[in-house]
Amino acid sequence: MTSVFALAIALFLLVNLVVALLAAARGPTPADRMLMALLFGTTGTAVLVLLAAAGGGTPLVDVALVLALLAAIGGIAFAKRAWQGEEGGDA
């Protein structure tokens, strides 16, 4: 029963993620789109943990750990190196 519920929550979070993906494709500023990518990182971590509980096995928890840590690197690289202004040009 709990594994079915975990799978349902994982499906709900995936729908959530797809909606955010559709919005990220047409976000108004560069910062919006990067924040969407960071939200994907966290949601992906939650989906992986839920899949591990729904019968995927404990190795998926390790994948979730690595994802949680390394999704932040993209955000740091964006803030430090790539973000040049409110609406940067196309290089």
Binding site: A72, G75, I76
Partner: peptide
């Protein structure tokens, strides 16, 4: 770990 990472990214951005 997620708390630390999210705090760092939020501060940097």
């Amino acid at each position: 770990l997620v708390l630390a990472a999210s705090a760092g990214v939020g501060f940097a951005i």
